[in-house]
């Protein structure tokens, strides 16, 4: 088991003829992901890495029975692509695109929730269930199949954490990047809920950063979980009022600081590592204790 994606996941790549879409479609295919179709309006009938390209989502889903879409469409056209995916019948949409305006996201969020469609991102690296499927842009070779669920707001920071886990022999069930924007479709709590239910996952690593209150909300939820959760929070040195690269990584007034998040997590009994490498050490300890108990 794993969460959200596995061997049976059938993926459509929206924006497959673009530079990023094409590159990552190939990489996903190489990993073994069932990339069954691509969509680019006006490019129907073409092939990209032998993957059939369609003009629209509806026909692509009809022809292939895909249940998941990953979106690489530039921000100006991305909202349209998301709505098209939502109306096509897929159950999971991953929005990799960075730069979607927040006002567009308000509507997208409302619409997708009304249709009960799960979405991840925007501004996210996607997800990987090592050994099974990769629907995202992370490099596959740093991952190892195993029992730790990883959920994060950041891309490369997650690679750093996962790299250290793998080096220490700690494998992952699913790694999911929820995205660095202020409004994202899948929250920490959503991912934690799925990991808690997943029989293959034995522990979770949560990688947060400054801005918003998703980590604080998650802390309350973790207090009710059976599985151990360890964490790292980036941005202890971030100044207030500045957007630290991610649109959502901003301390507004006095809210959204790393200190507040770490305090909330500690209060809920979650150990927070001082460095990304520290996550692997905390996990190694938890898993040994868990195995002995």
């Amino acid at each position: 088991m794993s969460i959200l994606i596995d061997e049976s996941t059938k993926v459509i790549v929206q924006g497959i003829t673009g530079r990023d879409g094409s590159f990552h479609a190939k990489k996903m295919l190489e990993y073994g992901t069932k990339v069954v179709a691509g969509v680019t309006p006006g490019k129907g009938g073409h092939k990209e890495h032998d993957i059939p390209v369609y003009d629209g989502m509806a026909e692509a889903v009809k022809a292939t029975g895909a249940n998941t879409s990953i979106i690489f469409v530039p921000p100006v056209f991305a909202a349209d692509a998301v709505y098209e995916a939502a109306d096509s019948g897929v159950a999971l949409i991953i929005i990799v695109t960075e730069g979607l305006p927040v006002h567009d996201m308000l509507k997208i969020d409302r619409y997708l929730r009304s249709k009960n469609i799960r979405y991840i991102g925007p501004n996210c690296p996607g997800l990987i269930s090592p050994g099974k499927s990769k629907v995202g842009i992370m490099s596959a070779d740093i991952h190892l199949k195993g029992g730790v669920g990883v959920v994060s707001r950041s891309g490369t920071l997650t690679y750093e954490v996962v790299y250290n886990m793998t080096k220490a022999g700690i494998g992952q069930s699913t790694c999911i990047g929820i995205g660095g924007d202020p409004i994202v479709g899948t929250s920490f709590i959503d991912a934690l809920t799925l990991f808690e239910k997943d029989p293959e996952t034995t522990a979770v690593a949560m990688i947060g950063e400054i801005g918003g209150s998703d980590e604080e909300e998650a802390a309350k939820f973790i207090a009710t979980m059976k599985k151990p959760v360890v964490s790292f929070i980036a941005g202890r040195t971030a100044p207030p009022g500045k957007r630290m690269g991610h649109a959502g990584a901003i301390i507004s007034g006095t809210s959204g600081t790393a200190e507040a998040k770490i305090r909330a997590l500690n209060d809920a009994g979650v150990e927070v590592a001082n460095t990304p490498q520290g996550i692997a050490e905390l996990l190694a300890h938890k898993l040994t204790v868990g195995a002995a108990g």
Binding site: L157, Y159, G180, T237, A238, H246
Partner: peptide, 22 residues
């Protein structure tokens, strides 16, 4: 990467230094 950039600054501080920038 934004998250790794922040974490790099944090670790500089953790080991007694001061980052000049993000």
């Amino acid at each position: 990467g934004a998250g790794l950039s922040m974490a790099t600054m944090d670790i500089i501080k953790l080991y007694g230094g001061e980052p000049a920038n993000f």
